[in-house]
Design a protein around this nucleic acid. Sequence first.
DNA 1: TCCTTATTGATACATAGTATCAATAAGGAT
DNA 2: ATCCTTATTGATACTATGTATCAATAAGGA
Lengths: 146, 146
Amino acid sequence: MPGKTINPEEWLTALNESGIRVTAVQETLIDIFAHSGYPLSAEEAWEIARQSRPQTGRATVYRMVEKLENLGLIRRVHGYQGCSHFVPTLPELMMLFICLSCGRADYLDSQPLEDLIQHSEHTSGHHITDSRLQLFGDCRACQENA
Amino acid sequence: MPGKTINPEEWLTALNESGIRVTAVQETLIDIFAHSGYPLSAEEAWEIARQSRPQTGRATVYRMVEKLENLGLIRRVHGYQGCSHFVPTLPELMMLFICLSCGRADYLDSQPLEDLIQHSEHTSGHHITDSRLQLFGDCRACQENA
DNA sequence: TCCTTATTGATACATAGTATCAATAAGGAT
DNA sequence: ATCCTTATTGATACTATGTATCAATAAGGA
């Protein structure tokens, strides 16, 4: 499945500009989330982090995940496999597809979602300020392999 | 906020036809979920259930919630207020709006979502078999009250 | 009414996430 | 370069949420 890439440097910059100090754990976790092709839980990120930094604390990982989510750098994946997994946020590309065969995430152009939201606002009268959309199925690669 | 209604009888029928026995807990929980205007967690449903049936067991409620979800009678609400709340499923109406002010749920016509899915299938090449869409904001009633 | 078996309730356990606090380390002041 | 202040860390304990086990119960057909 083709994947767009993330620039870990930009994440560090975003964290620092929000007043958060630069630490080793930060860089470790940013690398882990930025380079994973599939949704990761805090617990999984903790396991991976301890491979290179065995003294990494569990709570620290949960705290950093919270910060990354608050800054919008990672997004929670809802649905299959629970609600505790995260993927990197790609700006302007917020329609997430998760393959039920290989588990990988793909980001789709979000223009159709923006259109849908605008249409729903007009027909319902509600003021829509946020949305969550997740699509599930078999990705193109898995279909070809089957 | 206008609400469509649920027929608890149909839920009982669906449960029974799936081979599940008719019990008092079933009817209690169906009533609780079918008549709630906002998302309920299993824990909250347990509290409510014990008001009329104090001996109701905690695990029993979780089991029934799982059955109702598996049968598609209730759906998990993802996002704000966590991922452990459920709303009744209205067939063919799967676009859920949650008001961040009053907490109530509204169901929107899902045709735009079906169109979006079909469009995304064609442009991405993925085979989409399931979706989760949640919209958040201020409902029309809350806007008028403000 | 009896009998079989799914369901229940109680309990213990497992998993996910949070609060606390002394120890550490970042980074500005000196 | 060293000190000082304070955010961050790691360890621990705790809470919340969900699951497994199992004897007791009750549904519903024989």
